[in-house]
Amino acid sequence: MDVEQLEKKAIEMRKATWEMIYRAKSGHTGSDLSCTDILVALYYKVLNQTPETFKNEDRDRYIQSKGHAVEILLNILADRGYFPKEDLLTYSQFKSPYIGHPNNHIKGIEMNTGSLGHGLALSVGIAKAAKMDDKDYHTYVLMGDGEQAEGSVWEAAMAAGSFKLDNLTAIIDHNGLQITGKTKDVMNSEPLKAKYEAFGWNVVEIDGNDMSQLVDVFDLKPVQNKPTLILADTVKGCGVSFAENKAEWHHKVPTEEQYKEALDVFDKELEERK
């Protein structure tokens, strides 16, 4: 897919996620919309992985440490054919495996996440295994910026630097907001770039809602002996104007009026891109 096609796909996925959250009356809306472009770039352009190769030893791995943004991940996996789209109609229902955080009983999900601060260390283990076995697969992990307050993130950041894991790329969905308010007010984890660099990482800063920048950054060759952090500046709620940059939309469910309003916008955008 080229950048234009990826951008269109991102709108489709935002729309599907918006519909799913409204239907289920549950979801982390702002968090899903914030990282949509990152996930679309990964799943339609970057990851060396398909539903058919998901169990192959040489597949690239993706770990979603910010597990609460599961709705966008599930919609993308369904769209990529990991499981039927109809399955997602059971999202958040009695006995459904499609629940509010990634569940590894679902094809396409590597590990269970949801409790924050686990994904980076999981990815360190996976990337370390690749080094030990001399395998070429790459490991990607997506974290939130609020998540950076977890001490376990820094244990793992230290290990990734010490182990020289240049086969590991972490992405921080850097939208500056968490459930209580601004991340810098709740617990200031900045400056993230300087901190990760001090832990032995190569850090690249981009606009994480700009598809061409995402495509370019994932194209960069890894810096030898260093893990890479993509510090992706994003907008929480991106794509739904009234939800953008508002902490309250962290896990807010749209009203009927809001639902229709955003749906109209998505449809118009898709019409324009036909």
Binding site: I126, A129, G151, E155, A159, S162
Partner: peptide
């Protein structure tokens, strides 16, 4: 993994996930 017991367990889980 150094004196980092949380990391010890999770890195182990990551290694186990890759065989």
């Amino acid at each position: 993994v150094g004196i980092a017991e949380q990391d010890l367990v999770t890195i182990s889980a990551g290694l186990a996930h890759s065989g």
